[in-house]
Design a protein around this nucleic acid. Structure first.
Lengths: 211, 211
DNA sequence: GTGTGTGAAGTGGTTCACAGCG
DNA sequence: CGCTGTGAACCACTTCACACAC
């Protein structure tokens, strides 16, 4: 178990190994090799082994990895010591999609509060979660002890929402789905997912494949 | 203009430059430097210059880049020689979110057909686009000459939908939003966006920041 | 023999630093 | 003098290749 900083691409793959192992365990598979995992996720076997080796010797030489054991092991690496409290700002289609998203059903975190500007949503529960005015975000975020906020508001509103969220003082991370570069203080960890960029990349490489 | 393969991260940034320039042009800014662009998008100025240099000398030394000219220039690199026809399979919340997505309003492509299994959706128009049974996908894809399909169906259905889409024979690219690894023939270009992985990464690095 | 763990080599992308042009 | 364009240096991630454990 080294204390080296783990690279982002590695973390990304760890999440995928974890999911795959969950599935394999459900199917009753007991043991899996790096080659098998690699084939199923389209990675090289050596990549899989290197990723897993960062956390100590967990496989058995000549045999492979014990599915259940490896699942728990990676779970321990990814899992947080505690349950994260999450808020979601912008209950449009994308926000609701995330709320109902399978892979978001997770023991690691819980969506505690929603925020929107639409009066017909404020004060109601959506998919079981209470929705507040975005004006009240700083107060609610503090009261609920929310440490991560997902932003799914329209582009133009994203920065002002981010500012308000940061002003609560409790928020440690923001996951932004708007196609803008947000500016937040260094104390807040910011990740962005730009849904449309992947489509543009796909089209770009398709174009360049064509001739 | 070199014919070197352009790296994926570069394409990703080009899309962002393009968007930024559109905005700057709208605000009436005439000239922009690599340093300014870098600051606005959180890239190093040298990165911006290197990216732009792949396509010939487009800036003016001592001055910067002419906003409008650079916008058109990048547009020409990213733009397709033709309008792509796009299909979308799975008109759930995520699918609808994409349909209504600002950044998806684009002259490069057009969403021509939707596919779903829900009888209450099949035969109707959703946000102006006709919805067909997923059973009919191969026929409709051929008739409409659709070359790219976006998959936003639940995880369990993703592979079978992909297979059906590929069987149409017209589809050259698939953009997958399900958190599974799809297998498609080499002739089809596959990109995947995994919305939940970014959240897991954020939480992972938050955890490791905490102590 | 089989499959892991890992140093070493390789590849790909980013950043530097400075020459060169406006 | 300012800011671009770009080879060279640097850094990060991936892949190889093989010793070693089962």
């Amino acid at each position: 178990m080294k204390d080296t900083k783990i690279a982002e691409p590695t973390v990304e793959r760890l999440v995928q190994y974890h999911r795959l192992l969950e599935q394999l365990a459900a199917e009753g598979q007991k043991v899996v090799s790096s080659r098998e995992m690699g084939e199923m996720l389209s990675f090289k076997a050596s990549q899989v082994r290197k990723d897993l080796s960062y956390f100590g010797e967990i496989g058995k030489r000549g045999v492979g990895y014990h599915v259940d054991r490896l699942f728990k092991h990676i779970g321990g690496i990814l899992a947080s010591p505690r349950l994260w409290s999450i808020g979601l700002a912008g209950v449009g289609k994308l926000g609701e999609a995330l709320l109902g998203y399978q892979a978001f059903r997770n023991e690691k975190f819980q969506i505690k509060a929603l925020f929107d500007v639409d009066p017909s949503k404020i004060g109601t529960h959506i998919q079981g979660t209470p929705c507040y005015s975005i004006e009240d975000a700083p107060r609610v975020l503090r009261e609920e002890g929310i440490d991560v906020v997902i932003i799914t508001v329209p582009t133009g509103a994203a920065q002002s929402v981010a500012d308000r969220v940061v002003s609560a003082g409790t928020v440690k991370g923001i996951l932004n789905f708007s196609p803008v570069t947000l500016s937040v203080p260094d104390s807040v960890l910011l990740y962005s997912v730009d849904i449309s960029i992947e489509l543009e990349k796909l089209l770009f490489y398709l174009k360049h494949r064509e001739r």
